[in-house]
């Protein structure tokens, strides 16, 4: 009821209102590819957002691979320099370098596939 009264009050217009309305009146602006252009911009933005994280992960992995391998090698060297009676038990409890790298790769591929499926 109140909104109806407000709408009616808004409809009561004086000469100047009608003059302004006629002056503000303009033909609808044709789309002419405007919406397509924006949708294309948004799709590009989405694509960049989707690709950024995996690309950064791959790049980071490539950069970090050598230092990580070096670090792991030095750990294994350190372990091999330990007394013989300690090393066998440690070696059996720690995973091998190949196993760590394979595990990391599988984890990365799984996460990447999951994010792709989610998209």
């Amino acid at each position: 009821m109140t909104s109806k009264i407000i709408n009616m009050a808004e409809r009561i217009k004086d000469e100047q209102d009608r003059l302004l309305e006629s002056m503000f009146e303009s033909a609808p602006i044709a789309d002419n590819g405007f919406s397509t252009q924006i949708v294309r911009r948004i799709r590009r933005k989405l694509w960049i957002r989707r690709i950024t994280l995996p690309a950064a992960a791959i790049l980071g992995g490539l950069i970090a691979f050598q230092p990580v391998v070096g670090f792991l090698k030095s750990i294994f060297q350190l372990l091999s320099s330990l007394p013989v009676e300690v090393v066998p038990s440690l070696e059996s409890s720690l995973p091998s370098l190949q196993l760590i790298v394979t595990g990391a790769l599988i984890l990365f591929v799984l996460m990447f596939s999951l994010s792709m499926l989610e998209d």
Binding site: P28, I29, D31, F34, S35, T36, I38, V39, I42, R43, L46
Partner: peptide, 13 residues
């Protein structure tokens, strides 16, 4: 994005 494109088409003018 197609639904958003439709919203743009409706209100761009």
């Amino acid at each position: 994005t197609d639904a958003f494109g439709e919203l743009i088409r409706r209100h761009q003018s």
